[in-house]
Design a protein around this nucleic acid. Sequence first.
DNA 1: CATGCCAACTTGTAGGACGATTTTCGAGTA
DNA 2: TACTCGAAAATCGTCCTACAAGTTGGCATG
Lengths: 231, 231
Amino acid sequence: MATIDDQDDGKEVDRSPFDRTYRGLLRGLYEGRYVPGQRLVAPDLMQTFEVGRGTIREVLNRLASSGVITLAPHRGAEVRRLSRREVTQLLDIVEMLLGLAARGAALSIDEGGNRARLLADHERLSEQVSLDHFASFIDAREAYYRTMVQLSGNEELQRLFPSAQVHIMRLQLRPFNRAGDSAELSDYNEMTQAILSGNAEQAEAAGRRHVRLTIERINDLPDRAFAASQP
Amino acid sequence: MATIDDQDDGKEVDRSPFDRTYRGLLRGLYEGRYVPGQRLVAPDLMQTFEVGRGTIREVLNRLASSGVITLAPHRGAEVRRLSRREVTQLLDIVEMLLGLAARGAALSIDEGGNRARLLADHERLSEQVSLDHFASFIDAREAYYRTMVQLSGNEELQRLFPSAQVHIMRLQLRPFNRAGDSAELSDYNEMTQAILSGNAEQAEAAGRRHVRLTIERINDLPDRAFAASQP
DNA sequence: CATGCCAACTTGTAGGACGATTTTCGAGTA
DNA sequence: TACTCGAAAATCGTCCTACAAGTTGGCATG
């Protein structure tokens, strides 16, 4: 399954209608063309992406089952809105998953080019932070996480992690977040060091701490960054 | 989204084609009519469930994105086979998730009828174990887990847990598992007690321990219970 | 201004069509 | 007999049309 995390390869051509639409929609979500709460109407999408309704339906189904959008019977799709509580709950899970990923990555850091790969991604992340270019920073962070998960060797994690919709959160918080947050960068330094040391316990702790710090930062955001909680 | 966990309500009638097919397929997987590795070809399914191909496709997409089946381009769907390694990796994740669920359940055990609900499900589980009726046992266990996750109040967990395909594992291990495993029951006793006590730490530990014990039991299974590992 | 009904729009699903790709199977060859 | 190659058959990906069922917004009525 294609995921948000898949690289673009530069080859923009020759993709299947499904793929074009899936990625296009995801990219749109990513870049803010589709905002939380917005309805995604099939006929519009058909025109936009020049594909049939069947294809649109499949794409929406995929996005829905990874939690990026919600589908209600006979009422169509809309970009999922997360309340403060939901974001917290989501991150509680991500804390676990990232801890697991970091642990696994530490255990396999000496295999193949793993060490080099992680270093390269961390390097890139650091550069992006200093450049203060939000989109690139997001990309670099995405790549860094993906590498961690891949190094862990846990294929189930690879399936679940994107679907855990870290992206949604990221998207939703975009207007309130800043690249170049040096506090955040030190998280990554710590986490990377822990993994490189090969110490599983320490790596897991670092991964979790990173997410907990993220939760704290998010808790400081104003209410308007979230969907209203349910009555 | 309808999941395996949804109760049947007895109302077999008046379900949408999608729902009929989705549940029918799931039930078939559950009951062993579809076994790991088996191909699921659209035309057959169309006949079996008397629905259009579009509907079949949507159902297969759903099942695929929760990891129950795999889809390969132009080659259709097949019931997913898990290698020993994959099962272990999956359970590593489930360990985290169940720990989280148990923790959350403990924290909210005094709200509403939560305590009564958990007790009722635990009671039912105990009965089924003594009855030694596999299918009922599975159902009871499913209900117990579902309740735990619901009590935790973490909606993301509710979305993820079924999709974490505990079911696949269960299905795959069916021929080798026995209901009435008293060791397993004592796990549940311990876990239930911990949650009822309202002690979050203790509950989380109990939930995790339960999964770790499950991993051990599974490690003892013969190779033929698993798909061959990749070359 | 509240209420209820209708028209317009969307979604859910079926069925047909057609190129693209994979699988099957049989003929020919070593 | 075993193996290779290619064509036929099966299946998939996608589009289009059609229609019933459900939702929504607005207009008429009280």
